[in-house]
């Protein structure tokens, strides 16, 4: 699944960011494989998306989010 499929409040682990549609800047801000990502808030139409990636808070557009592959985290944490 991709980042765009996350629901508000859900968390995931980033799996792959090698798509050429992902700007380097996003990686530099911490969006890297293995990092935990949480969808903090979405604007109407789920776009843009407000993320917390490993403590870095940032907003990206859906068109970028669909290229970031993730895996959901089991709910056991809570």
């Amino acid at each position: 699944m991709t980042l765009a499929d996350l629901k508000r409040g859900q968390q995931g682990i980033i799996k792959d960011v090698s798509s050429i549609h992902i700007p380097l800047k996003l990686l530099e801000m911490g969006c890297l494989p293995g990092n935990l990502v949480e969808l903090v808030q979405v604007a109407p139409f789920a776009d843009p998306m407000y993320l917390n990636i490993n403590g870095s808070h940032l907003a990206i557009r859906k068109e970028t989010a669909i290229h970031i592959l993730i895996e959901t985290v089991d709910e056991q944490a809570d």
């Binding site: 700007p23 801000m29 990206i60």
Partner: peptide, 9 residues
């Protein structure tokens, strides 16, 4: 175009 903004505290 791309859009990445930091959300400061």
């Amino acid at each position: 175009t791309f859009f990445v903004v930091e959300m400061p505290n």
